[in-house]
Amino acid sequence: MIRNSTYMNLSAEMAREGVLNRDLAQLLNVRPATIGQKMANGTFSMRECKAIKKKWFKQYTLDYLFAEEDD
């Protein structure tokens, strides 16, 4: 399996809800490629995590959404 995301739970919930990297990019005012890098490297700031959760994933905890693959 090729590892393309540190945030496996976030990736899964994005897929279920139809949220794309470009949607996150628009919310955070960055390029979609930057979102791909942040997903791969696990480098979202706490402010960014909270914004993503508030916009699309209110029902989940930050710990769940942004758990790293090895957690």
Rank of each mutant, 00 (worst) to 15 (best):
K38M: 11
A25N: 10
E13P: 07
T6V: 14
A67R: 14
T61M: 01
V30F: 00
L62C: 05
D63K: 10
Q59V: 03
S5K: 07
T43S: 15
D23K: 08
Y64C: 09
F44Y: 08
I35T: 09
A15I: 10
A25P: 12
R22D: 08
G18D: 04
Y64N: 09
L28R: 04
F44I: 01
I2T: 07
I2D: 03
D63N: 08
S5W: 02
K50P: 01
L28S: 05
I52Y: 02
K50D: 06
A40T: 08
K54M: 10
A33N: 14
L28K: 06
L27Q: 06
A12F: 14
T43Q: 03
E69G: 08
Y64S: 12
E69R: 15
Y60N: 03
Y64W: 12
L10S: 10
R3Y: 12
Y60L: 00
G18V: 03
M1I: 04
M46V: 15
T6K: 15
E68K: 15
N29R: 15
N21K: 04
R22S: 13
A25D: 09
I52Q: 04
A40G: 11
D23W: 06
I52T: 02
E13F: 10
Y64T: 11
D63Q: 06
E68A: 14
L62W: 02
W56M: 06
W56Y: 12
A33T: 13
G36M: 08
A15C: 10
G42R: 11
A51T: 04
T34V: 14
Y64L: 10
S11K: 13
K38G: 07
N29I: 12
A40D: 08
C49Y: 02
K55E: 13
I35A: 06
N9C: 06
N21V: 00
K58E: 11
T6F: 05
A12I: 11
K53M: 05
M46E: 15
V30T: 00
A40Y: 12
G42E: 09
K50L: 11
Y7S: 11
Q37L: 09
K50A: 09
T43I: 02
T61H: 01
T6D: 07
E69W: 14
L24Q: 02
Q59N: 13
T34D: 11
I35W: 03
L20R: 15
E13W: 13
M14W: 08
F44P: 05
I52W: 03
K55Y: 00
S45D: 02
R22Q: 10
T61F: 01
S11P: 00
T6M: 15
M46I: 14
D63M: 02
D23T: 04
I52A: 05
D71Y: 11
P32D: 04
I2W: 00
N41Y: 13
S45A: 04
W56A: 05
D70S: 14
C49M: 15
A15G: 08
E68P: 03
K50Q: 14
D23Q: 08
N41T: 13
N41M: 12
I52G: 04
A25Q: 07
M14R: 13
D70N: 14
E48T: 04
K58I: 05
S5I: 04
